[in-house]
Measured scan of single mutants.
Amino acid sequence: MTFKLIINGKTLKGETTTEAVDAATAEKVFKQYFNDNGIDGEWTYDDATKTFTITE
């Protein structure tokens, strides 16, 4: 399955996707992406659209 990440950061904005077997696996991938890029904020997940959103 394809999961999308929408980034609404102070310095970084955009979208990316990842292929994962489930939302929990995608969450781990995206959290690592947050850490690697110094993004910290509030994030949500919409199961209907398989979209994670992080807002700094």
Rank of each mutant, 00 (worst) to 15 (best):
N8P: 02
L12D: 06
D22P: 01
E56Q: 12
N8W: 12
T17I: 10
F30N: 01
T51C: 03
A48C: 08
T25M: 10
G14S: 14
G41F: 15
T49S: 08
E19H: 12
I54V: 13
E27M: 12
Y45M: 00
A24V: 10
V21H: 09
K31T: 05
F3H: 03
V29S: 04
A24C: 11
I39L: 12
L5A: 10
K10F: 12
A20Q: 08
T44R: 06
V29D: 04
M1V: 11
T11W: 13
T17L: 06
A24N: 07
K50M: 09
Y33L: 13
W43H: 01
D46Q: 03
I6M: 04
E56F: 13
I54G: 02
E19I: 14
E15C: 15
K13F: 12
T11Q: 09
N8Q: 09
K10V: 13
T2F: 09
K31S: 05
W43I: 08
K28M: 10
K50C: 04
G9F: 15
Y45A: 00
T53F: 09
T11M: 08
N35S: 13
E42A: 10
L5T: 03
T2N: 07
E56I: 15
G14K: 12
G9A: 09
L12S: 08
Q32C: 06
I39F: 14
I7H: 03
T53P: 00
G14L: 15
K28L: 11
K50V: 03
K4Y: 15
T16G: 08
V21N: 08
I39G: 05
K10H: 12
V21R: 11
K13E: 06
A24I: 08
K28F: 08
F34N: 13
E42K: 08
A24T: 08
K50I: 02
T16R: 14
G41E: 03
F52R: 00
A26G: 01
V21C: 09
D40F: 14
V29A: 07
F30Y: 02
A20L: 02
E15A: 08
A24Q: 10
N37V: 14
G9R: 05
T11D: 10
V21E: 07
M1S: 10
D46S: 05
F34P: 01
F3S: 02
E56P: 12
E15I: 13
D22C: 03
I6A: 03
F30C: 03
G38E: 13
E42S: 08
A20D: 02
Y45P: 00
V29C: 09
E27Y: 15
W43T: 03
T2K: 11
M1R: 07
K13W: 12
G14F: 15
L12A: 09
E15T: 11
E56N: 05
I39V: 08
Y33P: 03
T49Q: 04
D46P: 00
A23M: 09
T44K: 08
T55Q: 06
A23Y: 11
F52T: 00
F34D: 01
Q32F: 06
L5C: 15
K13S: 11
I39S: 05
T16H: 14
T55S: 08
M1A: 08
L12F: 14
Y45Q: 00
A23F: 09
K10Y: 10
L12W: 14
T2Q: 09
T44F: 10
K31Y: 05
V29N: 08
A23S: 07
G14P: 04
N8T: 07
G38R: 08
T18Y: 13
D40A: 10
F3K: 02
G9Q: 06
E42L: 13
A48D: 12
E42H: 11
W43C: 06
A20I: 03
M1I: 14
T18N: 02
A23T: 04
E15M: 13
L12Y: 13
K50L: 11
F52Q: 00
D47Q: 08
A23I: 07
F30D: 00
K28C: 08
E42C: 10
N37E: 09
L5P: 02
A26P: 00
G14D: 08
E15Q: 10
F30E: 00
G41P: 04
A24L: 08
T16V: 15
E27G: 07
D40E: 13
K10M: 11
I39N: 04
K31N: 03
Y33M: 13
T18S: 03
A26Q: 00
T51P: 00
T49N: 05
A23G: 03
T55H: 07
G14H: 13
G38V: 14
M1K: 08
N37M: 15
I6E: 02
F3E: 02
K50G: 04
L5W: 02
T51F: 01
G38I: 12
E19D: 09
M1L: 11
M1Q: 09
M1Y: 15
D22W: 01
K10S: 10
D22H: 02
A26R: 01
F34C: 15
I7Q: 01
K4I: 13
N37T: 13
E56H: 07
D47M: 06
I7F: 13
I7C: 13
E56M: 12
Q32D: 07
G14M: 15
A23W: 07
F30I: 05
D36C: 10
D22F: 02
E19C: 13
T53H: 05
Y45S: 00
E56G: 05
T2C: 13
W43G: 00
T49E: 05
Y33T: 04
F34S: 15
W43P: 02
D40C: 13
T49G: 03
N8C: 14
T55N: 08
A20E: 03
Y45E: 00
W43E: 01
F52Y: 04
T55G: 04
D22E: 02
A48N: 10
D46A: 03
T51S: 04
G9C: 15
G9N: 05
K10A: 12
N8S: 07
N35K: 14
T53D: 01
T44W: 08
A48K: 08
K4T: 15
I39Y: 08
E27L: 15
T51M: 02
F30L: 04
W43Q: 01
E15R: 06
N35C: 12
T49M: 04
